[in-house]
Computed example of a mutant assay.
Amino acid sequence: MRVKKPAQSAKQAAVRFLSRRDHAEQELQQKLLARGYEPGEVDEAVALCQDYNWLDDARFAERLLNNGIAKGWGLLRIRQEMEFKGIHEEVIRQLFEDDEFDWFEHARNVARKKYGDTPMETDKEKARRLRFMQSRGFDFEQVKNALGVDDEY
């Protein structure tokens, strides 16, 4: 099945996509290729957008980091989202290397918002809370600290 030739140029389509929201370079390339643009056209469109600073993986990654924190996600979940969006590993590594955010405090705030000050009275409740926090992308040390769990689980 052939994809019909798009009416507008790849550059116009790229600018239209970026006018709606930021994209990662790989994400924009995939969208343009899926719309039927030739790889050469896509490369030119991406290069144009980078030249004008409309497309910047570092800025996009920083925005994802801030949005993930606002959603109550942990470092692991945010990193996974960045990888899914196609942000280069080097950009991700650099962003988290420069990061001075207190992930332990963030985990405590997320747990407090979800559970308040209600105590964990059963092992089942403890396991449920641990699973919730881990599903949010917090590592085990952050989860134990946030929930006040001292024992080995």
Rank of each mutant, 00 (worst) to 15 (best):
A146N: 08
N67S: 05
A61C: 04
D98T: 12
I69E: 12
V15A: 15
L33W: 00
G137M: 07
W73D: 07
P119E: 13
D56G: 12
K144V: 05
H88Q: 14
E38G: 06
L65P: 09
P119Q: 13
V15I: 13
V149L: 04
F17W: 10
I78L: 01
L147K: 05
I69W: 12
Q12Y: 06
L76F: 01
R59D: 06
D99H: 14
E41A: 11
A111I: 05
D123T: 09
R21Y: 05
F96R: 02
F60I: 03
G86E: 09
V91W: 04
C49N: 05
V46Q: 03
H23E: 00
E83S: 04
K126G: 04
D51W: 01
L65R: 15
D99R: 13
L95G: 08
A47K: 00
F84A: 14
L18S: 11
G116H: 14
D98F: 11
Q29L: 01
K31M: 06
D123W: 09
A127E: 12
N53P: 01
L76I: 12
A146D: 09
A146E: 10
D117C: 09
R16M: 12
L18A: 11
K124P: 01
E44H: 03
L76W: 00
F17Y: 13
V46Y: 02
F132Y: 09
E141H: 10
W103H: 03
